[in-house]
């Protein structure tokens, strides 16, 4: 069963169900931004080279720019908009705010989604490990030292 025009795609995003009619070539990133108005996820390079589009699929961090929306059907997707619960910032979000772990803010949603996963994966054990496992998220403003501090702080909070 193939179609070259549009296909129905069912997406489960931030606990809500969405049905879209999409060309198969539509990436998850463009579906989020252009079709669903979930513009918190950013496009920095569109080629998997910057990490700005990091979202969680089935709880793992992935790049929405290299994921077809159709591929994500049947998976659970979380974006930056789905991180805070009932108005309460996620500990990683709160730590980013407190540590000034961003400047222009454009890479920030990707950094935060990446950081949440980094901690969950158990890759936030030391500053060195945080730096390596956060290396997939470019920050042109140079907020890295504060990002490391924020991840370190949030990792401790999540653990306690």
């Amino acid at each position: 069963m193939t179609s070259k025009t549009t296909i129905p795609v069912h997406l489960d995003i931030n606990g809500r169900h969405h049905t879209l009619e999409l060309e198969p070539r539509v990436t998850l990133l463009d579906a989020l931004r252009d079709r669903l108005g979930l513009t918190g996820t950013k496009k920095g390079c569109d080629h998997g080279q910057c990490g700005a589009c990091t979202v969680h699929v089935d709880g793992e961090r992935v790049l929405a720019c290299l994921t077809l929306a159709a591929q994500a059907e049947g998976r659970t997707i979380t974006t930056i908009e789905g991180l805070a619960r009932e108005g309460e910032l996620h500990p990683v979000q709160a730590a980013f705010l407190e540590q000034d772990a961003f400047q222009c803010g454009y890479c920030t949603p990707g950094q935060i989604m990446s950081a949440v996963a980094c901690i969950r994966e158990g890759h936030a054990g030391s500053d060195e490990e945080i730096r390596e496992y956060m290396a997939g998220n470019l920050c042109r403003c140079g907020a890295y030292p504060h990002i490391v501090a924020a991840v370190r702080q949030a990792a401790l909070e999540v653990a306690s």
Binding site: D34, T39, K43, E81, Q93, F96, D100, G105
Partner: peptide, 27 residues
């Protein structure tokens, strides 16, 4: 002080130019 726009930036609700989508918009 922490950034007054910080809450928007950490929640993905800070609206950058490309996040706008007026009705009838083309690409």
């Amino acid at each position: 002080l922490t950034r007054r726009d910080g809450f928007l930036k950490v929640t993905g609700t800070a609206r950058y130019a490309a996040d706008n989508h007026p009705p009838g918009m083309l690409y």
